[in-house]
Simulated scan of single mutants.
Amino acid sequence: MKNSIKVLIAAMVICVQGTRLQAQSTNKTTGIYITEQDFKTGKLSYTLGAGDKLLLNEFLNGKNITIISQGQKTKLAKSQMFGYCQNGQSYRFYRGEAYCVLDTAGFILYSCEQLIPQGKGLKPVEKYFYSVNITAPVLSLTMANIDESFAGETGFRYSVNSLFEQDGNLVTYDKANRQYMIKYLYQEYKHNAAAQHAAL
Score class of each variant (00 low, 15 high):
1 M>L: 04
2 K>G: 00
10 A>I: 08
15 C>S: 15
16 V>D: 11
19 T>G: 14
19 T>M: 07
23 A>C: 09
23 A>P: 10
31 G>R: 08
35 T>Q: 02
38 D>E: 04
39 F>S: 00
43 K>G: 01
43 K>H: 13
44 L>I: 07
45 S>E: 15
47 T>E: 11
48 L>W: 09
48 L>Q: 02
49 G>Y: 08
54 L>S: 03
55 L>A: 13
59 F>T: 06
60 L>C: 03
61 N>Q: 15
65 I>C: 06
65 I>V: 09
69 S>R: 13
88 G>V: 06
99 Y>I: 03
101 V>K: 05
101 V>S: 06
102 L>R: 07
103 D>K: 05
105 A>E: 15
105 A>H: 10
108 I>L: 13
113 E>L: 11
119 G>L: 10
123 K>R: 12
125 V>N: 02
127 K>P: 01
130 Y>A: 00
130 Y>S: 02
131 S>N: 01
134 I>D: 09
135 T>Y: 05
136 A>M: 05
139 L>N: 12
148 E>Q: 07
151 A>Q: 10
153 E>R: 06
159 S>Y: 03
160 V>M: 11
162 S>G: 07
165 E>R: 05
167 D>H: 00
169 N>E: 06
169 N>S: 15
170 L>S: 11
170 L>K: 09
171 V>P: 02
174 D>N: 08
175 K>A: 10
175 K>Y: 04
176 A>M: 11
177 N>S: 14
177 N>A: 08
182 I>V: 13
188 E>Q: 10
189 Y>T: 03
190 K>A: 04
193 A>N: 10
194 A>S: 10
195 A>C: 08
